[in-house]
């Protein structure tokens, strides 16, 4: 474990960037994913189509390709570093999966809920926000938990574009120290430090909400 001591600040910096990227992408992909999920259940046909095209594009292209496209092509127009390009790519990619999850959640909520709310005087947006979405998220929770964990792991894409994340620093340490095996073991453990509490928290939420319902 001398390796961990020698390179501790390097690993810690990588951990910090991975954490930052994951948090930003999680919040961003939840917002975008929910938005595109709602678009797909609106009565307006063209909105459904736009929502569906978005989802199909981003969920059917490898994350690496989206990342490289942003880093190599888009970055020529809008200046951004590898961290930013990778985080945006991660957000777009994950949001497509979250949109599908949330859309399925919305469709699982009995249509009587929306009808009752509209008949009660609520606007569509109010009915969505206060009645349908809370129930949809509850249904979608286990699946959202999976998406979040995938997101943290997928953030290792940053390493390909010099994003300074955990994977990137792990590669550096492995190359400099020649102790490849230990370096990647340490990287793996750092990922667990993020993903395990997240897993347990999602499980706790699920149980907690089940008890309340």
């Amino acid at each position: 474990m001398g390796l961990l001591q020698n390179y501790f600040s390097t690993f810690l910096q990588g951990f910090g960037y991975t954490l930052l990227s994951s948090v930003v992408a999680l919040v961003g992909s939840m917002l975008l994913g929910t938005l595109f999920a709602i678009m797909q259940v609106l009565p307006t046909r063209w909105m459904q189509i736009v929502g569906n095209i978005y989802v199909q594009i981003f969920r059917n292209i490898p994350l690496l390709i989206i990342t490289l496209f942003l880093y190599l092509a888009v970055a020529k127009v809008v200046k951004m570093n590898g961290f930013t390009a990778g985080t945006i790519a991660l957000t777009l990619y994950t949001s497509a999966f979250i949109a599908e999850t949330v859309r399925a959640g919305i469709l699982s909520v009995d249509s009587g809920q929306m009808e009752g709310a509209r008949a009660n005087g609520l606007k569509f947006g109010q009915a969505m926000r206060y009645i349908v979405l809370p129930q949809a998220f509850r249904v979608a929770l286990p699946s959202l938990g999976n998406q979040f964990i995938n997101l943290v792991k997928n953030s290792s894409i940053l390493a390909f574009v010099g994003g300074l994340d955990l994977m990137y620093q792990g590669n550096m340490v492995a190359a400099n120290s020649f102790d490849t095996f230990t370096a990647y073991i340490i990287v793996g453990i750092f990922y667990l430090v993020l993903t395990l509490p997240l897993s347990y928290y999602m499980q706790y939420l699920e149980q907690h909400l089940k008890a309340k319902a």
């Binding site: 809920q113 009808e115 709310a117 206060y130 009645i131 129930q135 319902a213």
Partner: peptide, 10 residues
């Protein structure tokens, strides 16, 4: 409504 349509989350 016949099936009440109460808000299940409230």
């Amino acid at each position: 409504f016949q099936h009440f349509n109460l808000y299940n989350n409230k």
